[in-house]
Design a protein around this nucleic acid. Structure first.
Ligand SMILES: [Mn+2]
Ligand SMILES: [Mn+2]
Ligand SMILES: [Zn+2]
Ligand SMILES: [Zn+2]
Lengths: 144, 144
DNA sequence: TATCATTTTGAGACAGTTTATCAATTTCAA
DNA sequence: TTGAAATTGATAAACTGTCTCAAAATGATA
């Protein structure tokens, strides 16, 4: 655990430094736990961390995950009715395939789709800032 | 107003008939107002209708819009953090371009994107049931 | 048209999720 | 080491949407 997530920790420190924010025990702890997941809800992280740190407040989890979003390490994604924080520290933009049977989430990137999105936007006079593409269905296992 | 939205009214009646549901003054009123919009929140519809019918309850709005969804007249869409009911009575599947400046929503369809989505799904062993594609950005007016 | 079982409504309670408040604690620059 | 500023945890509050239930409306039937 000593030399894992060094890069992300560095990125966080950089963000903190730029915004007069402080590095706390909680922020370190939450970052470390967050980086072990791909997609997680604040509530799930709260329960997960409660085992080792029963006094960590839910509000702190929310505040910290939102801080990670500001720092570019995380991204809040609204899947169905849940808000999951997506670990984007080590990867670029991507979209999602979501199994409605088992909740499995597969990430994908498709240059061609992205290009066509730009085309659609341009045709309508828009400049895209962000987008969201989610495909909901059944994975091979759940189909049977 | 006498002969507008006759088809949609008919579709609603058909759904009601099939499910032992009743046609009420409120359902007629809400349908008529709903069909005048493209995308609207339950809350917005509530305030809009309150002017002419101050006793119409918010729960009734929600119940009725959800009924329209069941009847295939409406579709609930989660844009950002808002849930808007999309009037789909007279159109098929489509996706959205959303201006983050003025909230303008432009609908579009793109065969090619849809095809590529299927391709991505197949490649990952998924069978798509639904999908959501939203492009957020600035419209030409808001860019300046 | 009157009857009346069934459905619907409106008001507000309630639930789930996220943010705001604030006194106490922690951090870190000087 | 000190102390101003930031952060935390507990909990209140905000917000969105659903549930409850007594009263009212609907519509099939006589
Ligand atoms: Mn992801
Ligand atoms: Mn639409
Ligand atoms: Zn599955
Ligand atoms: Zn605009």
């Amino acid at each position: 655990m000593a030399n894992t997530h060094v890069k992300e920790m560095q990125a966080l420190k950089e963000h903190l430094g730029k915004h007069q924010l402080k590095l706390t025990r909680q922020r370190e702890l939450i970052l470390s736990a967050f980086l072990r997941q791909e997609h997680i809800t604040a509530e799930a992280m709260y329960h997960q961390l409660a085992k080792s740190d029963p006094h960590l407040g839910l509000a702190t989890i929310y505040r910290t995950l939102n801080l990670f979003c500001d720092a570019g390490l995380a991204q809040a994604r609204h899947f169905g009715s849940q808000t999951k924080y997506d670990n984007v520290s080590h990867k670029g933009h991507h979209d999602h395939l979501i199994c409605t049977g088992c909740e499995k989430i597969v990430e994908f990137e498709n240059e061609e789709i992205e290009r066509l999105q730009e085309e659609v936007a341009t045709r309508n006079g828009f400049t895209i800032k962000t987008h969201r593409l989610e495909l909901y269905g059944l994975c091979s296992r759940c189909r049977h």
